[in-house]
Design a protein around this nucleic acid. Structure first.
Length: 125
RNA sequence: UUAGCAGGUCUCCCUAUCGCUUUGUUCCGAAUCUUAAUCGGUUCAAAGAGGAAAGUCCGGACACCAUAGUGCGGCAUAGCGGGUAACGCCCGUCGUUCGCUAAUAUUAGCGUAACAGGACCAGUGCAGCAGAAAGUAUGUACAGGUAAGGCUGUAGUGAAAUCAGGUAAACUCUAUGCGGUGAAACGCCAUGUAAAUCGGUGUUUGAGGGUUGCACGUCCGAGCCGAAGGGUAGGCGGUUAGAGCGUAAUAGUAAUGUUACGACUAGAUAAAUGAUAGGGUAUCUUGUGACUUUUAGGAUAACCUGAACAGUUACAAGGGAAACAGAAUCCGGCUUAUGGCCUGCUUUUUUU
RNA sequence: GGCCCCGUGGCGCAACUGAAUAGCGCAUCAGAUUUCGGCUCUGAGGGUUGCAGGUUUGAAUCCUGCCGGGGUCA
């Protein structure tokens, strides 16, 4: 399994994002929340993922960028979990709910836990 | 040693692994009669945030709007001279205020100092309290003076009391400048529905729009407005080499100009430039030793012992880039935020 | 990316054509009334007018620069 996270796997369609907020389900492991939806995607990939950080909690653009990079990085390194255990196509959106600056050591284990929780929830359905 | 001001300068480096974007390139596939081009994947290589990228406060470039016209309105600037593409920016200079110093009783010199610094003999307005009186003046006391009289001076209130009064960051006037809208400008391509329904209004007696704060003028002109409902919300160009940067010479008090040479691929778009691990440097903290300086005691040619603050240096241990901050069409300024280092000046404290 | 508006006691608002004690309602506190509480009545406290400069004799008000909040445009 490769750890690449190219442009095609990024969630960009405004339409899909609106749909996610309307119809998506969610799991969360504080401080990360995952909103997801089983749906068709415009590109020929299994999952499109996006990240978002509230401007209200972090006014500095530098900090918002930093958190988004950490979220992307941790997803990139751990997405193999999902690809190996599921064949459906999904749209993902990760939200950062915390109000404190995290570091990679805090984010990465939470991401692993979150993706595991997601898989368990989907299999029971 | 503390704090500040001004000027200059920098905004870590190396290795490994895993990634992102752009450009070039290798190979493979799709499509096509073939090639080129195109699309998808892939190999390798190169490049990839700032001094403020920020605030959006000024000024431009550039683009579009009818060849941007006229009148009214509106906005901005304000000694003089220069610089500049331009500016509300910068430089020089004069003046005013303030502070300091020196002599002197009003000047001179200096400054990390401040200045929106045209006009109140064009007109209009405004001035609480105090005060007799606040802009059409003139009361009291004292003194002077007249033929007579607030005719003159002083006192008193106040920021200001008849003075060509004060006030324009009051209206206003003068001079100068400004057409409007901003990359969500603008051009091209693609995708999709409903050329449907209901109501109102209009077709040369002109609805509506271009058009901007208003009016006029002018151009287009058969649709337009509302209700409920349906669809799309993608791509490409604009888009990165420039009124730019460095060095030297030269003109100028300076801002800045001129000439020569040289170097320079950031272009993202739910938004790239990152993550992890290890090491190093600048540098910081602590400890030990040596030297310098000062000082106490003893000896008295240079020496010995102890103490203190500061500095220099060597070694060891530990910490180690960490401040403000993320390009979004591009430039010139201003303002604000902020960590080092260097230079100059002012300042605080301590020791001698 | 552009444009516009607003900051006054704890909360909601006045005073914005400069004038000296910055006002009103609710809330808070104290007293009266009541067996107690509420209602009612009386009184009190609470403001560097977002911050920093400037103009002026005098600034919440005028001007400039910051800070914070909100809205709007495809």
């Amino acid at each position: 399994m490769r750890y690449a996270f190219p442009k095609k796997e990024k969630l960009k369609s405004k339409k899909l994002i609106d749909l996610l907020f309307e119809e998506g389900k969610s799991v969360s492991v504080y401080p990360i929340k995952l909103i997801y939806l089983r749906t068709a995607l415009p590109e020929n990939v299994r999952i499109q993922a996006g990240v978002t950080v509230s401007k209200k909690n972090f006014k500095s653009a530098v900090r918002r960028n930093r958190i988004k990079r950490l979220l992307r990085e941790s997803y990139r390194l751990n997405k193999g979990q999902v690809f190996n255990n599921s064949d459906d196509t999904f749209a993902f959106l990760f939200l950062y709910l915390g109000k404190e600056m995290p570091n990679f050591g805090e984010i990465a284990p939470k991401m692993v836990e979150l993706l595991h929780k997601f898989l368990v929830k989907e299999k029971t359905h």
